[in-house]
Design a protein around this nucleic acid. Structure first.
Lengths: 202, 202
DNA sequence: ATGCGGTGCCCAAGATCGTCGATCACGACG
DNA sequence: CGTCGTGATCGACGATCTTGGGCACCGCAT
């Protein structure tokens, strides 16, 4: 067994190069050759770890999804459900530069969801995961009396999912009209409207 | 002046070929050659009308955007503001195959919004237009007593924009979990929650 | 009617890309 | 010290986008 290399580490290293190239030239510019050059390797070396370009891009996408899920770890959230929900959105929305970069790359990957079956599966799984997270948060808020128990949970989960993804999209693609503070305001307001004490005028 | 051809008509003809190819082979299959073959021309002829592939796809998207704006023409909307709003969303959301194709192209272009200045400007203008449309609708609903006059109009416009774009995104990228009927339901429910008579529990 | 110029269309070549096969370097183990 | 598998590379093929040049044809001026 000669010259043992940590394959997974090398693959993650290449994934980072993919993100950089995508941010600089867009997903269309994320050629195998460009990624290889960015990472300081020959195109053939990249192919040694990813036999196909789709495999490379899909892996880069999966790494982002994994990091996002890790960020959402409920371990260090505030005890109060309402505070916890707000904190969770702060972590999930692309409000800081790192998360913003991840979301820019994610937006770029969206085009592949329509074309690549595996990317589509990742996207579906990611949506499924987010639905679970939001369902859990809403249930906690209901249990704490911060959200009316009479809501249609499935419907509100979907509304929150859609609102969240639209918000993430606007934060990245329409920054001038959607600064981070505005996004926080919208989330706060939306949760407010679910409150049992919410007057219809507010 | 020899052999005069209506350039704009020819360009729209090619745009239609783009939609057909996208529907058959996806966005990735929308190569210049494939579009040319579909339209019955040589790749070079297409090049004569669109010097670059991005230009071709850009134009195809713009045509669809124009048609969408035309479809949103409030002239033939129902008189009742609430019915009119629902009808408008039916027209704007990618519920039928044509509108769906348009939105697939839109999703594919989202990645370019971050790296291409022209795509960015187009996206910004589109968002601006949509904000105006939604603001107008909300104002009509308020005037008709279907939406509480106490709402923060700017905030609700933004919430509706974000909800709408998230909905359009999910309709295209997560069709199994977001069928057209569910999208209609979400819109109806969201407008319901803005109603002055909306009980907090519903 | 006839030549001329511009328009519409196309071929061919250059550049880039994804992928495949063959090849080289090298270190661990027998 | 030889052998073999791993890591890394090069070269080539086909497909693609793009550019530059060239061909055909139409309509007006002469």
């Amino acid at each position: 067994m000669p010259k043992i290399v940590d394959h997974d580490a090398r693959r993650r290293e290449l994934a980072r190069a993919v993100w950089q190239v995508i941010r600089e030239r867009g997903v269309a510019g994320a050629s195998v050759r460009a990624v290889a050059q960015r990472a300081g390797w020959s195109p053939s070396s990249v192919q040694y770890y990813f036999s196909t370009q789709a495999e490379l891009l899909n892996f880069a996408m999966r790494v982002i999804a994994d990091e996002t899920e890790r960020r959402a770890d409920p371990a260090h959230l505030p005890a109060d459900p309402h505070e916890a929900a707000l904190a969770l959105f702060d972590r999930l929305l692309p409000l800081d530069p790192d998360a913003r970069t991840a979301n820019e790359v994610w937006v770029a990957f969206l085009s592949r969801v329509l074309v690549d079956a595996e990317a589509g599966a990742f996207n579906a799984a990611s949506n499924e995961w987010l639905a679970e997270v939001f369902r859990d948060q809403l249930q906690r808020l209901v249990a704490a009396g911060r959200v009316s128990p009479a809501i249609d949970l499935d419907l509100e989960v979907d509304r929150l999912r859609v609102l969240f993804d639209g918000l993430a999209l606007h934060l990245v693609t329409d920054a001038p009209r959607m600064p981070p503070e505005r996004a926080r305001e919208l989330i706060r307001h939306h949760l407010e409207t679910l409150s049992p004490s919410a007057a219809p005028d507010r």
